[in-house]
Design a protein around this nucleic acid. Structure first.
Length: 253
DNA sequence: ATGTCACCGGCTCGGTGA
């Protein structure tokens, strides 16, 4: 039986984190690594070529940016979710699997930024519904910037009114789930305090004050083939880390 | 410790975004 290891990781600048990403690829050997927050126009494709990985990046100056790094060829389907000016979406077929990598808007502060987040989530819902209606099974991963439930943050009262946790945000996320998608992590682990992000400030990592905002959502036919989903906290402990850590799934292929 | 990090412009810092 063959398995695919697929990973999502917000690296907070590919330039600042290149050695971390290369180390991760070498040590963990994922089939597909989806990364977010590239934070610049440049993308070091050749660096990944040299260690046996294909890659495809969607970039913009200074902000956002997503890329797929894969052992298997990448057949790009869409480079944007809609006529969005920001680099936040890539959809591709890899090894017979439809994969989507997103960097969903943060949405803070309230106002234009939050309205943009909600619009983006509506566009995403429309896309995922269309794929579902057309029986195209997919795996979507990325930095959703959504805390799904109270137990996904260290202190819910701290997050009241925040764009990552507002009821309207969680309802929009719930609408994705209601398309029949599985939150891969919660299929295997229902405990509170399982985080994928720890702020750089105030010793959040050392104190264990995190949030779970990086997710994999899986179509019904693929969720039957899901064998594991774990948060790998190791890279968050490395020197000069990203503030996020990788979320890893294994699926039968 | 009003407790961080990375981007950019055009500069060794301030504004912005997370």
């Amino acid at each position: 039986m063959a398995f695919m290891k697929i990973v999502t990781w917000n690296v907070n600048s590919i330039k600042a984190r290149l050695e971390h990403v290369k180390r991760y690829l070498t040590e963990e050997s994922p089939d597909i690594l989806m990364i977010q927050e590239l934070k610049g126009l440049e993308f070091p494709t050749h660096e990944f070529d040299q260690i046996g990985y294909h890659s495809h990046a969607i970039t913009q100056k200074a902000y956002n940016g997503v890329a797929i790094i894969s052992k298997h060829p990448i057949d790009v389907i869409n480079e944007t979710l809609y006529d969005d000016e920001q680099a936040r979406y890539i959809e591709a077929d890899i090894n017979g699997l439809r994969v989507i990598n997103i960097y969903l808007p943060n949405g803070n502060p309230m106002g234009d930024k939050y309205n943009y987040k909600l619009e983006w989530m509506e566009h995403l819902y429309t896309r995922l519904k269309k794929l579902s209606d057309n029986d195209i099974a997919f795996i979507i991963g990325g930095d959703f910037n959504v805390i799904p439930e109270d137990k996904d943050c260290y202190n819910p009262s701290n997050w009241e009114g925040d764009a990552l946790f507002k009821l309207e945000t969680r309802k929009a996320y719930r609408a994705f789930i209601n398309l029949g998608l599985t939150d891969a992590f919660r299929a295997f682990n229902t405990k509170a305090g399982q985080y994928s992000f720890w702020d750089y400030q105030a010793g959040a990592w050392q104190k264990g004050n995190g949030i779970r905002i990086d997710h994999f959502l899986i179509s019904p036919t693929i969720s039957d083939k899901l064998v594991s989903c774990t948060i790998n906290k190791q890279p968050r402990s490395w020197e000069k880390p990203s503030d996020h850590t990788p979320l890893e799934i294994t699926v039968e292929s």
